[in-house]
Design a protein around this nucleic acid. Sequence first.
DNA 1: TATTTTTCTTCACTTAAGTTAACGTTTAAT
DNA 2: ATTAAACGTTAACTTAAGTGAAGAAAAATA
Lengths: 192, 192
Amino acid sequence: MQNLLLDFILQYIHLDENEKNAIASLDIFHTIKKGHILLKQGEFSNQGYFVLKGCVRSFYIIEGEEKTTAFYTEMEGITPQCVIDNKPSEYYISCVEDSILLISTPDMEDEMFQKFPKFESLCRILSEKLVSKQQIDFDNFKISSPEERYLNLVDKRPDLIQRVPQHQIASFLGIKPQSLSRIKARIIEKNK
Amino acid sequence: MQNLLLDFILQYIHLDENEKNAIASLDIFHTIKKGHILLKQGEFSNQGYFVLKGCVRSFYIIEGEEKTTAFYTEMEGITPQCVIDNKPSEYYISCVEDSILLISTPDMEDEMFQKFPKFESLCRILSEKLVSKQQIDFDNFKISSPEERYLNLVDKRPDLIQRVPQHQIASFLGIKPQSLSRIKARIIEKNK
DNA sequence: TATTTTTCTTCACTTAAGTTAACGTTTAAT
DNA sequence: ATTAAACGTTAACTTAAGTGAAGAAAAATA
């Protein structure tokens, strides 16, 4: 697990032994069971998550219905809005599968930034990349129909279709489960 | 204009005279005319933009049709994906109004980060905030109907409704101009 | 000012998603 | 192993967005 993390970081910046050890010494690896809720709507939290293995989902509950808005899988991270703005969370975060997560707090991060400014560079670079990626994802969502969004998901994140229940996929695509079933049937019909 | 920028920055970090002068000495203020295209689809660029005054729009042209995906107004910045990934741009960026923009390049930023590490902290913090804000915007888009999205826009960015043509607003909301007209008529009908 | 172009709205019609309900299947719990 | 709950699909019906066309209003241009 340590190595997965180091390899990921080394794609972006170089680390000396000292810095590698600093990471290794952080006791931040956590094994979380499927279904466990990491963050609840209305709750305060100062935890950020980085997925080393497994899958994490964020969702709202609106009029009793779950609205899934994001999935985070291997080498993806989330810092919930409530951590950044210091206000109660508007959404839930839970584990879709048994997962290994890296859990951090702003205090820990600030400490690392103090000791190793390089880590702040890393976080800046990763954040900037993420801003740009998110914008593209949002753009593609806007300019696509539900059917196109589904086909795009099958193309870009085929693993998700397998590892996540369909009604969560539907919600993630901004439609109802019944519509997703219909879309899938329509696609099969077309390809005949 | 200098002061607008400094005041914005001072919300997040403290600057000494030296640092303030460093910013002032950057010759990065540009006056851009309405309609001017800053970035074209297919083009390479290394320019990032920060809006001091005015309004900038990003859009795709798909099958001859403009698809507006974002508006950037006072104190908002864009670093186009093509700058970050060093590949041709998938979208256009143009000025909706006469605007005053701050234009930067990665080289300039890296130089500033070298001289004043504090600026890198600032950029990290701003990027992290932006990631979180973007995620919330995307979430709200997904969990809302077109009508709700429109009402939300009227509530959250009423200025946009005024300063931007309706067909661009429609596209931004993920619908056709005709549908936006209908939605507006429906809302008026309801409130009678 | 006159003229062209862009923008916005309305309408009739088509298409696709939402809704409600039912049913078989898979998964989890006892 | 049995039961209950959650999940996925199908169907009939409703609602709302897309489409194509036309015309009025506003803005840009000559």
